[in-house]
Amino acid sequence: MRKVIFKGTALPLLLIAPQIAVTMIFFYWPALQAVWQSFLIQDAFGTTTQFVWFENYQYLFKDPSYYNSMAVTAVFSTAVAVLSLGLALLLAVMADKQIKGAGTYKVLLMWPYAVAPAVAGVLWLFMFQPSLGVLAQVLRNLGLDWNPLLDGTHAMVLVVLAASWKQISYNFLFFLAGLQSIPKSLIEAAAIDGAGPRRRFWTVVFPLLSPTAFFLLVVNIVYVFFDTFGIVDAVTHGGPAKATETMVYKVFQDGRLGGDLGGSAAQSVILMAIVIGLTAIQFKYIERRVHY
């Protein structure tokens, strides 16, 4: 709270107006519409709508394909979190050692952040495209009948690889910043007490890094939930047989061309609840970090 301020009411209202206008028109209004629509069922021609209370939700929770999309999202987020956090942590620990060229390594590892998820998807699709992909050929020579266009597991592996690849740089930068904020004196003290590098990592460094790791975990989950839409759409279209249909992708598919707008809206509302939950968790963490 500032003590010294300017007088006036019209000017500040004018200054804040554009932001509020855009927020109201493109955030609150559609969000309310989503909630309202989730209580409605429209007939196939869009001529009559009926208020049906929670029928869309009930229908959703009886629908096996909704549970499928939840499972896909859970597997997808877990795999991406493990793979990209693990690799990023390993790289950050190595780059944190005061070795020559650490700055260069950092630059060479951070640029994939700038690659669009959909483009990352195309890069990996090309390498693993069953008929012409270079790495697909390698797999075939090894005797694996690789085909992400037909095999659901293969498709999932492909989107996980593409999504993790893009996320490594982000996780790496935050882990590195976290590592560099740990006082070197603590590590030296542990070394004087006779702890070797491995023991120092697990008893000193890792616990001090856990707030960063937790923060990144939440960010990675949010990333898989929302930002991987482009990867899924470019690489698999949610297929084969819905094997890579994430919850967001299902919202998109179900409401497409005015299909099931009520069901799609109900899914949107559930997703909103999930985002609010995840954001709340993140804020709790940030409060804690301030005390550190």
Binding site: I5, G8, W29, A31, Q33, V248, S268, M272
Partner: peptide, 28 residues
């Protein structure tokens, strides 16, 4: 830098949108 009516209300109105990515309100 100002005090005006509904200042905090407006601030929170903006703040809450952190939680509403395009992906959760696609069709509306």
């Amino acid at each position: 830098f100002f005090r005006f009516p509904f200042r905090m209300f407006f601030f929170w109105t903006i703040f809450v949108t952190l939680m509403l990515p395009v992906e959760v309100r696609i069709y509306p």
